[in-house]
């Protein structure tokens, strides 16, 4: 599928000399959901702001739907919807007026039916005549999303859309995002919640120090870096590991009550069958067995830690 967003060697250096983006290259396919993960100050928001026209790039290019963000900014921006990180709304305005305003600003004629459907989809219909300042934080965030959708964008940027919202609302938003994807909208989201990326994103991009460390399909990343743990609960606790288990990458936990075996799910041999035989030979009786896969969060921490170590080594 064709890339709807192409970023080439995009750099941003702020007046003080801080390099927020150090030559970002990124292709985003039409209709996919990509999550940008990275620690605070990694450059996620700067990247989004630059593509959307809020920040001027120092050099490099970006195009949306083949339209350059600077030369052909009208066509490029008309395709983009942006939900910013901060709740930026005029407090005295009415909810539905906000949507009409956004639609008009993007050069689209008033459309009551569309505004109604967006407000209903985001559970805001009952609040359409309410002033923004009367709404809860979660509701305000929904208004921001509704505004971004009012001009029917083909590319939607969600900059930490669920920061500070409750679990129920977060799940609602995930559903909204899934629905938008089914309508062919391309979604780029930044998040601190790894479970969000894991649950929604087709691909994950890891960004740190203004550089993209990697962009991979979420499942590949999980497979590549994901390790599984086999937790074996014992009937009788062990004081030390028996000699039969010396060849395995195994640890004693819970005061000898549990054996923890780490293995790679994609290795030719996981070693589980051999381990079971060895346990049997050692006369160890099992009570329960569990497996657990490392989360994207752990993978992310490992990745960032690795790159930090490499950076320090170079220095």
């Amino acid at each position: 599928m064709a890339a709807i967003l192409q970023v080439r060697d995009l750099k941003k250096t702020y007046e003080g000399g801080f390099e927020a983006l150090k030559g970002i290259a990124l292709d985003i396919e039409t209709g996919e959901i990509i999550a940008l993960l990275g620690p605070n100050g990694a450059g996620k928001t700067t990247l989004i702001s630059t593509i959307c026209g809020i920040t001027e790039p120092t050099s490099g290019t970006a195009s949306v739907g083949g339209h350059d963000i600077q030369r052909d900014y009208r066509k490029a921006r008309a395709m983009i919807g942006l939900v910013p990180q901060e709740i930026n709304l005029e407090p005295f305005s009415m909810v539905e007026d906000n949507l009409h305003f956004s639609r008009g600003l993007f050069g689209k004629p008033r459309d009551e039916a569309l505004v109604e459907s967006i407000l209903k989809r985001l559970s805001l219909w009952d609040k359409r005549r309410a002033r923004v300042r009367e709404l809860s934080g979660g509701m305000k965030r929904r208004v921001l999303i509704a505004k971004a959708l009012a001009h029917e964008p083909r590319v939607l940027f969600l900059d930490e859309p669920t920061a500070g919202v409750d679990v129920g609302l977060r799940k609602d938003m995930w559903e909204t995002v899934a629905q938008l994807k089914s309508e062919g909208v391309t979604i780029i989201l930044t998040t601190h919640y790894i479970e969000e990326a894991e649950a929604m994103a087709d691909r994950v991009g890891v960004i740190r120090n203004g550089q993209i460390l990697m962009v991979e399909p979420t499942q590949d990343l999980m497979r590549r870096f994901g390790r599984k743990e086999l937790r074996i609960e014992l009937r009788e606790p062990l004081t030390s590991l028996p000699a039969e288990l010396a060849d395995y990458e195994i640890e004693l936990a819970d005061e000898g009550q549990t054996l923890v075996y780490s293995y790679d799910t994609h290795a030719d041999r996981t070693g589980i069958a051999g381990l079971m035989r060895s346990l049997n030979e050692a006369g160890i009786v099992l009570r329960d067995v569990q497996t657990r896969q490392s989360s994207l969060e752990e993978i992310f921490v490992d990745l960032v830690a690795d790159s930090r170590t490499q950076g320090e080594a170079k220095a």
Binding site: C52, G53, I54, Y73, R74, K75, A76, R77, A78, I80, L82, P84, E86, N88, L89, E90, P91, S102, L105, F106, G107, K147
Partner: peptide
């Protein structure tokens, strides 16, 4: 006012000159 409350982002990211 839009600068102060942050809603200026919408003007800057809209297809307007």
């Amino acid at each position: 006012f839009p600068k102060f409350i942050g809603t200026i982002f919408e003007l800057l990211s809209a297809p307007v000159n």
